[in-house]
């Protein structure tokens, strides 16, 4: 963290010759000013930091621990860690620190650390969060970190995602259109309006937070779950696919354990780290399914 704050000065010196090239004579002045402003800003930031934060704040983590392979750890327990807080620290940062400094047996999934890979969804202080996207400053202490509920725990914070992936695959989450535009380099275009319509649904990162928060999915193992239905929405609403393919998709989601299981609790919409309006999409598919089956002629 501390190294990151010093960084702005370095690229500045590297950039300066490149930026100065087009107008060599007037270059030093704006650059000087820019550097001056940067130094000032840096000083202000450091001062603000010193004022707002006491030197050594510790974050109290309570982390769920369980390991079925070690006899003494088969009983689930909570371990306490006191992690030194740094500005901008996320739940995942704190967990990484705890693992690196205190207990190397602490197990959790993480990869990209920027809310794209979807590996690090945890149950933090009673609701599903993406570890790398959740600031510790926004949480109440002690921060209670547990594996996602309603999924089998493999070890510590690692849960079995197999069922979630099965549900995701069951809606055939890929473009099925076979009539492609003629010509080798022809683009397969989508209207701007249609892109806007499916935009939010394309953001899913398969983290499983919604499925874990869903009360219905917990009780009904066959229910597709919010993520899978959202995936179906993404393709069913895509105008580039033919009408027959859309009908095939609607047939999948309108089954007994499809969209009709949703009872609009809005739990999934509330926990989605990518802010996908899941309930809205499910409701829209319900309407589509009804429209498909209602024929007055």
């Amino acid at each position: 963290m501390s190294t990151q704050q010093q960084q702005p000065e370095e690229p500045e010196t590297q950039e300066s010759p490149v930026e100065g090239e087009p107008e060599t004579e007037s270059a030093p002045e704006p650059q000087q000013r820019r550097l001056e402003r940067k130094r000032l800003g840096q000083a202000q930031r450091e001062q603000a930091e010193a004022e707002t934060e006491p030197e050594e704040t510790k974050i109290h983590l309570k982390v769920f621990r369980y390991d079925p392979e070690v006899e003494a750890k088969q009983e689930p327990r909570f371990d306490d860690y006191y992690v030194p807080y740094e500005r901008g620290m996320t739940v995942l940062d704190a967990l990484i620190y705890a693992r690196d400094e205190f207990d190397s047996s602490l197990t959790f999934r993480h990869s990209c650390r920027q809310a794209i890979c979807g590996s690090d969804a945890f149950f933090v202080n009673g609701s599903q969060h993406l570890g790398c996207k959740t600031q510790l400053s926004e949480l109440e202490q002690p921060v209670r970190i547990e594996p996602l509920p309603h999924q089998e725990v493999i070890k510590d914070l690692v849960v079995d995602m197999e069922h979630f992936y099965d549900q995701m695959h069951s809606v055939e989450p890929y473009m099925k259109q076979e009539d492609l535009p003629d010509g080798d380099l022809e683009e397969f275009r989508q209207s701007r309006e249609n892109r806007e319509k499916i935009k939010m649904s394309t953001r899913c990162i398969w983290c499983g937070a919604c499925m874990s928060s869903c009360n219905i999915a917990a009780g009904d193992n066959q229910y597709l779950g919010p993520a899978a239905i959202n995936k179906a929405y993404r393709f069913a609403m895509d105008e580039r696919e033919d009408e027959e393919i859309k009908e095939h998709r609607l047939r999948i989601i309108e089954q007994e354990h499809g969209v009709w299981r949703c009872q609009t609790q809005f739990s999934c919409t509330e926990v989605c780290p990518k802010d996908i309006p899941l309930t809205e999409h499910i409701q829209e598919l319900k309407r589509e399914a009804v429209k498909k089956n209602l024929k007055f002629w």
């Binding site: 009673g126 609701s127 009360n215 009872q263 609009t264 609790q265 809005f266 739990s267 919409t269 509330e270």
Partner: peptide, 9 residues
């Protein structure tokens, strides 16, 4: 920790 939608349900 239940949300509004959950209580409504």
């Amino acid at each position: 920790e239940f949300s509004a939608g959950m209580w409504a349900w």
